[in-house]
Design a protein around this nucleic acid. Structure first.
Length: 866
RNA sequence: GCCGGGAUGGCGGAAUUGGUAGACGCACGGGACUCAAAAUCCCGCGACUGUGAGGUCAUGGGGGUUCGAUUCCCCCUCCCGGCACCA
């Protein structure tokens, strides 16, 4: 055995050994319990970042731990290979996105392999491969056939200079990121998937996911947002010229009598109608086009509106209510119209105050009165008043009565509403999965026949930033109508990349199956037993995946209801964001590693300069490591310098996995030091001939060895629990470090001590092996020559070793620590109380006071209340 | 703005079910070894106070429940994630 720890040597040796023995290739073994451990696949952005290392190390630790427990483990890997960054890189470097993507995959695969992950690489997939996205297209057509996919219009960000659709990310302060031009909202035809048809099931089955974090389930439930309300029809006041009735949805029908106006979206037909021959209104509608599309911006933007001069009739009071156009009402969210109750809705109150509209209170707290006029909206539930026959009712009674009255008049009814909206999947982009449809002048929209799938995306185009290159490539879009054979035009929109990632975990199970989307092996491996990925995916990706797999289930392609039995949402690895902004609003990001921080004498930060040009850069706070913000940390240097094991160990030790981690690499040395110490301990031990095992094995010996033996088994129990149940890898590592510290201090050289040392080192190597597999692989061969670590079972804690006959109790006076007592395990309560009162400093603190109460918590403490 | 999280020494974090706050590690300080440095090993390390044993304070801020609160409840501040075309 070498004296020194050489990570590079032992890591490449271990990796070669695993590869040569195909150690991680997964095969279905009927009857053996399976464990499908899946980490979210990476976007091939160029290099790994620390978030990847965290994600994949967690997955690897769990995979290796389960394997040692006898599970048949599948841990696959692939690439979420379509997407926007490839197009941006293409524009920048004049290279086709395909080439950039494949180069990145090749590089990142090497990086992943250097981490020593127990992955079955034979199942690797990339979503940009035709044999993968073919099935996106195939399933989309099935959904179209079942009415689960449909075509309608949707709003997009339009850059008038580049004549192109922008992603939300490409809109900065309302301007296009490349052109700086003011972005407009445009309505264009798009395809949608009817996720709302599954809203109820998606909500209900959250309750059968005990292995999901509460916070994720809460977020999904809120996102789906099931609410019970009433559809209300406001008939047109035809005298005012109002062309149609308006339908609105409200969850606060109890406030209906307080409605003083109705607001419609700028895109609403009534708004369009009112604007005819009214330049001021037309101008306002035009201005609304430059408003926000994103909900976050919408919620904070200044509320603006304009009176149309049209009126509707209040369905119950028959009062005339003015119809306004408001920038906070969006077409495509519900009916594109809302009733406004300024007295009981904050947004309406703000709007009514601004435009001097009527505020009519109709709800008051049950026990008191409102101060009128209101200083702010009263939004709580209360009791109706000033509402004619509906006065004096509590919330639900008022809603019921008003809904019944509306229903009788044919002007409304109760309805369940979901906040969830259908999933728009059309993207006016090149680097994505083509939507398999053909437009024929004679036959209309025609699906590409199954035997002509996949519609292959040409891989040699280079986008120039101005529109989708597919729409400029006749060889792609020119085709024959499958129905009549006449010349027709192929759809040039591609699918949202969330489609690709909604079922990749299913495809891993049947990788290489080229005649069907799934096969029998899917039912062996699925559902995923443990899914691991960033908390940022808590809603969209996970919800789309749940939806997509339910559609597949209903098509008979899979048998499970929920794709991910257990979910571990890792916290994000954050890093500082550094950037510069030009006058046009164009932003360039710089990697924090290329920036020097300027400090004053007290070490306080005064600025930051880019090392390359010495010019200042701005700090955008800290945020998730991402390609777009260029704040990723490449783990490559760490792996090269310390080895993969140190990088893995440090990552796992730095914090518990669910917690956000602000990246700092101080501490890396500590992890490396620990591995060197472990190596040295084993080296010092095996250097001497190991004597025959002493049957005593530390059990009947006293003092130091007994304590070590106890700690060893306590550590086995703790590490097993931390890895398997709690997923707190940091505390598992800390426990092993403590054990190592004790072992290092052992000064006994008896045969019993040697055999206990051997046992301890073996167990330590086994316990650490999921986290630092390479060094453990090498050390195991030294400790147990002729055997392989991968064939070993997870150690069991010896319960007899954990029995203690004496325990220590803490003694408190008024909740403050004042002493300790050692007692036999089954000491009676009265004896404990007496001992506590006599112990340590206790007398001093109870002298002259009356003992009111003595609280004894068995096995823990005694609290004396005076 | 809305939804979900978070805040504990100089730093990362621990305290698992309401029961000894600061495990483990980093950084730092002191010492040993060395011609010297690195590496390694040993000791110390929340703040204030005391010669000392010890005492007091302290888990973002304010209030509450409890014999006892980092943990539960209410209010507030700041930070992070998501908000439907970044992935």
């Amino acid at each position: 055995m070498q004296e020194k720890y050489h990570p590079q040597e032992i890591e490449s040796d271990a990796q070669r050994h695993w590869e040569a023995s195909a150690a991680f290739s997964a095969v279905e073994i009927p009857g053996k319990p399976k464990y499908y451990c899946l980490s979210m696949f990476p976007y091939p952005s160029g290099k790994l970042h620390m978030g990847h290392v965290r994600n994949y190390t967690i997955g690897d630790v769990l995979s290796r731990y389960r394997r040692m427990q006898g599970y048949n483990v599948l841990q696959p890997m692939g690439w979420d290979a379509f997407g926007l960054p490839a197009e941006n890189a293409a524009i920048q470097n004049n290279v086709p996105p395909a080439q950039w993507t494949y180069d990145n995959i090749a590089y990142m695969r090497k990086q992943l392999q250097s981490l020593g992950l127990a992955i079955d690489w034979s199942r690797e997939l990339a979503t940009c491969a035709p044999d993968y996205y073919r099935w996106n297209q195939w399933l989309f057509l099935r959904m179209l056939g079942k009415g689960l996919a449909y075509r309608t219009t949707g709003a997009v960000n339009w850059d008038p200079v580049d004549q192109t659709v922008l992603a939300n990310e490409q809109v900065i302060d309302g301007r296009g990121w490349r052109t700086g031009a003011l972005v407009e909202k445009r309505e264009i035809p798009m395809y949608y998937m009817k996720i709302t048809a599954y809203a109820d099931e998606l909500l209900e089955t959250l309750s059968v996911l005990p292995g999901w974090p509460e916070r994720v389930k809460t977020m999904q439930a809120n996102w789906i947002g099931k609410s019970f309300g009433v559809d209300v029809i406001f008939p047109a006041d035809t005298h005012s010229g109002m062309p149609q009735a308006l339908k609105v949805f409200t969850t606060r029908a109890d406030t209906l009598l307080g409605a003083t106006y109705v607001a419609v979206a700028a895109e609403h037909p009534v708004a369009q109608y009112a604007a005819r021959g009214n330049p001021k209104l037309a101008g306002f509608i035009e201005a609304c086009k430059h408003g926000a599309t994103m909900e976050a911006e919408l919620a904070v933007q200044e509320k603006k509106g304009m009176n149309t001069g049209l009126f509707v009739i209040h369905p119950l009071t028959e009062a005339k209510l003015p119809v306004w156009i408001a920038n906070y009402v969006l077409m495509g969210y519900g009916e594109g119209a809302v009733m406004a109750v300024p007295a009981h809705d904050e947004r309406d109150f703000e709007f009514a105050t601004k435009y001097s509209l009527r505020i009519r209170p109709v709800i008051k707290p049950s026990e008191s009165n409102l101060t009128i006029p209101l200083a702010q909206a009263y939004v709580e539930h209360g009791v109706t008043f000033d509402s004619g026959e509906f006065s004096g009712l509590e919330f639900q009674a008022a809603v019921d009565a008003i809904a019944a009255a509306l229903e009788q008049k044919g002007l409304g009814e109760k309805r369940v509403h979901y906040r969830l909206r259908d999933w728009g999947i059309s993207r006016q982009r090149y680097w994505g999965c083509p939507i398999p449809l053909i437009y024929c002048d004679a036959c209309g929209v025609i699906p590409v026949p199954d035997d002509q799938l996949p519609v292959v995306l040409p891989e040699d185009l280079v986008p120039d930033g101005a529109g989708n290159p597919l729409a400029k490539t006749p060889s792609f879009y020119e085709c024959a109508c499958p129905q009549c054979g006449k010349p027709a035009r192929r759809e040039t929109d591609t699918m949202d990349t969330f489609v690709d990632s909604s079922w990749y975990y299913i495809r891993y199970a049947c990788a290489g199956q080229d005649t069907a989307m799934t096969d029998a092996s899917v039912n062996y491996w699925l559902p995923v037993d443990q899914y691991i990925g960033g908390i940022e995916h808590a809603i969209l990706h996970l919800l789309y995946s749940r939806f997509w797999s339910k559609v597949m289930r209903d098509l008979g392609l899979v048998k499970f209801d929920e794709p991910f039995a257990n979910l571990l949402t890792q916290g994000m690895v954050l890093n500082e964001i550094m950037f510069r902004k030009t006058e046009t609003g164009r932003v360039t990001y710089f990697n924090p590693a290329d920036v020097d921080i300027q400090t004053d004498e007290q070490g306080k930060r005064i600025g930051a300069l880019l090392r390359a040009d010495g010019q200042p850069v701005e700090s955008g706070g800290i945020g998730t490591m991402s390609k777009s913000r260029n704040n990723g940390v490449d783990p490559q240097k760490l792996v090269e310098h310390y080895g993969a094991d140190t990088a893995r160990l440090f990552m796992m030790f730095a914090s518990p996995p669910e917690q956000t981690l602000e990246w700092v690499d101080t501490g890396m040395d500590g992890a490396f030091r620990f591995l060197k110490r472990l190596w040295k301990q084993v080296y010092e031990h095996v250097r001497q001939d190991v004597p025959a095992a002493d049957p005593a094995q530390g059990k009947d010996v006293d003092g130091e060895l007994k304590a070590l033996h106890f700690q060893l088994h306590q550590t086995i129990a703790k590490v097993s629990d931390d890895l398997g149940r709690r997923h707190t890898f940091n505390t598992a590592i800390a426990a092993v470090m403590e054990l190592m510290n004790t072992l290092g201090k052992l000064e006994d050289s008896s045969p019993a001590a040697r055999s206990l040392t051997q046992e301890s080192l073996e167990k330590i190597v086994l316990l650490l092996s999921p986290i630092v597999p390479h060094i453990c692989h090498a050390l195991w061969r030294e400790l147990k020559p002729g055997t392989e670590l991968l064939d070993q079972r997870w150690p069991q804690a010896d319960s007899t070793a954990l029995v203690q006959d004496e325990i220590e109790l803490v003694v408190q006076v008024n909740g403050k620590l004042r002493g300790q007592i050692r007692i036999a395990k089954d000491t009676k309560r009265e004896v404990i109380e007496r001992m506590a009162l006599e112990s340590g400093q206790v007398q001093k603190f109870i002298a002259g006071k009356t003992v009111k109460k003595v609280v004894v918590v068995p096995g823990r403490l005694v609290n004396i209340v005076v």
